[in-house]
Simulated scan of single mutants.
Amino acid sequence: MIQLKSIHHIAIICTDYAVSKAFYTQVLGLTLLQEIYRAERDSYKADLALNGQYVVELFSFPQVPARLSFPEAAGLRHLAFAVEDVAAARQELMNAGVTVQEIRVDEHTGQRFCFFSDPDGLPLELYEG
């Protein structure tokens, strides 16, 4: 069996690079490590970090097909971020103009969580713990 060490990164393709870059850096607080323009693809790629750890690749492409998020579609369900206080983090998102669902409680762990979306409708979660 292969011995995985950790998750290296999550790749996200966006429809409006400037809007998504601002969302992930200014609203969610990820740090821009590097940004590359790939002329042959007419595509930007940003490497973003959370607490100094590289976690997200943000891509742009000239033509991208829409991906269903709701109703539940097959594939990756959502990207979850751990926070100390889900209510405080939820309020910060709402203060930034982000629509956030109500806080729920995980029936198995007792932890609080809530969902919101990035500018392209990608489902994101805040999970307390």
Rank of each mutant, 00 (worst) to 15 (best):
R41K: 15
P119W: 14
E92G: 02
G129L: 01
A80Y: 00
C114P: 09
F81R: 06
E35F: 01
A82F: 09
L126N: 05
S60Y: 05
P123H: 07
F59L: 01
E72A: 15
A89G: 03
I12S: 04
D16M: 03
F115N: 00
N51T: 10
C114T: 12
L76V: 15
Q91P: 06
F113V: 02
E84P: 10
L33Y: 13
D106I: 01
C114N: 07
D106E: 10
A89E: 10
D85R: 05
E72Y: 14
D42F: 00
E84W: 05
A96L: 06
E35V: 00
P62Q: 10
R38P: 03
D16V: 03
Q91L: 15
A18L: 11
E102H: 13
T109I: 07
A89T: 08
G121T: 09
E84C: 05
V100N: 11
V98G: 01
Q91S: 13
H108A: 12
K21H: 05
Q101M: 14
F81H: 11
L58P: 01
L124Y: 04
E128W: 03
V86K: 00
I10R: 00
L28K: 02
K5P: 11
V105E: 02
T109E: 00
A46R: 02
N51M: 13
F23S: 04
L58I: 04
C14M: 03
D118G: 05
E35D: 12
P123F: 07
F59Y: 12
M94R: 13
R90F: 06
L93M: 09
V27C: 09
R112L: 01
G52E: 13
V98R: 13
K5V: 11
R90E: 01
R112Y: 01
P62E: 03
L126S: 04
L93R: 09
A11V: 06
D106Y: 02
D118K: 06
M1I: 11
I7G: 04
D85E: 10
D47V: 08
A11N: 07
M1R: 13
E128D: 06
L76S: 07
A49H: 07
A49L: 10
L28N: 01
F81G: 04
G29A: 14
L30A: 08
R112M: 04
E35K: 03
Q3L: 12
P119G: 12
L4E: 06
D85V: 03
N51H: 14
A73N: 15
